[in-house]
């Protein structure tokens, strides 16, 4: 190998290391502070004394419901919008650029803006109050642009020759979409969903203003419920002696993200034929 190539390789490896080392340190500090708190009881008990005692079971329930509402709304809407964009709006036209640019701008809006909008619109105007539903819907709004854009890109990446082959066999439009287009684009769509889940689970600002701060286990979608990320923030910043439990909750959140990642990847991978 010529030396500039070798040098480039070394620089690349160093840069990768520079990214991986801080991530490792971050995980280590979470483990160091929080590992002592984690136990089966921590996962199965409800929090007591504003989170200073007990576990996080109620928060896992709340977070699960918020995420479920978010995905139930955002995934079909996102896929629908992406299908419209990829099927009806030819790439490179002014309409495509305009719509795409708008979506990219929406994706870049700071999350606190979605939080304030969600608070004003879902919680107050629609009268949903501080509730799982308000939180899930506000989160859905936040992740939709990301979801649409990544699904659209995945759909557009399906080779044109497949469409030609489909038309040659005179497959109906719906049949083409359902049996060929979506299964082919599934891995890309899955990545969009994973990214959206990641953003949704990490979100604090939106949820503090919509799903709220209540530690009780929610009885219905109209009850307020605290998400894991809000709990971490509050324990670390506002509760004396809350750091070990904040770190332990952070570890649980990281573990959930990793597991969801693996599951979604496995489910939607075309090699496994899950969409057929």
């Amino acid at each position: 190998m010529r030396w500039p190539d070798r040098l480039a390789g070394v620089i690349g490896a160093l840069l990768l290391l520079a990214v991986l080392v801080p991530m490792g340190l971050m995980l280590w500090s979470l483990l160091e502070q929080g590992a002592g708190v984690i136990s089966v009881d921590f996962l199965l008990d409800d929090p007591r004394q504003a989170g200073r005692a007990g576990g996080i079971a109620a928060l896992l329930v709340s977070t699960g419901w918020i995420l479920a509402v978010c995905l139930l709304v955002a995934a079909p809407m996102g896929l629908g919008c992406a299908l419209y964009l990829s099927e009806q709006v030819p790439a490179g036209t002014r309409r495509a650029q305009w719509l795409g640019g708008t979506l990219d701008m929406l994706a870049a809006v700071p999350s606190i803006v979605y939080g304030l909008f969600g608070y004003q619109f879902f919680a107050i105007s629609l009268g949903l109050g501080f509730s799982i539903l308000s939180g899930g819907l506000a989160l859905a709004l936040m992740v939709l642009p990301l979801m649409i854009r990544s699904a659209e890109q995945a759909l557009r990446a399906v080779p044109f020759s497949y469409r030609q082959a489909g038309e040659a066999l005179s497959i109906s439009r719906w049949g083409w979409v359902r049996r060929i287009l979506i299964p082919q684009a599934a891995p890309g769509i899955a990545v969009g969903i994973i990214l959206s889940i990641g953003r949704a689970l990490a979100e604090t600002a939106v949820l503090l203003f919509t799903a709220g701060y209540v530690l009780r286990r929610p009885d219905s979608l109209l009850d307020s419920g605290r998400a894991l990320s809000v709990h971490i923030y509050d324990l670390a910043m506002n509760v004396p002696g809350g750091m070990p439990r904040a770190a332990a909750t952070g570890l649980v959140l990281v573990a959930i993200l990793v597991i969801l990642n693996l599951l979604v990847r496995r489910w939607l991978h075309p090699a496994q034929g899950a969409w057929q």
Binding site: R48, A50, G51, R52, F130, Y213, L215, S224, D234, N238
Partner: peptide, 26 residues
Amino acid sequence: STIAPLMTELAERYEETTGVQVDVQS
């Protein structure tokens, strides 16, 4: 947000004693 954790804990005790539901938001 300074008072919210304290109020959450007071609310928790109040609920246990009286059964009245108190929702604290930060």
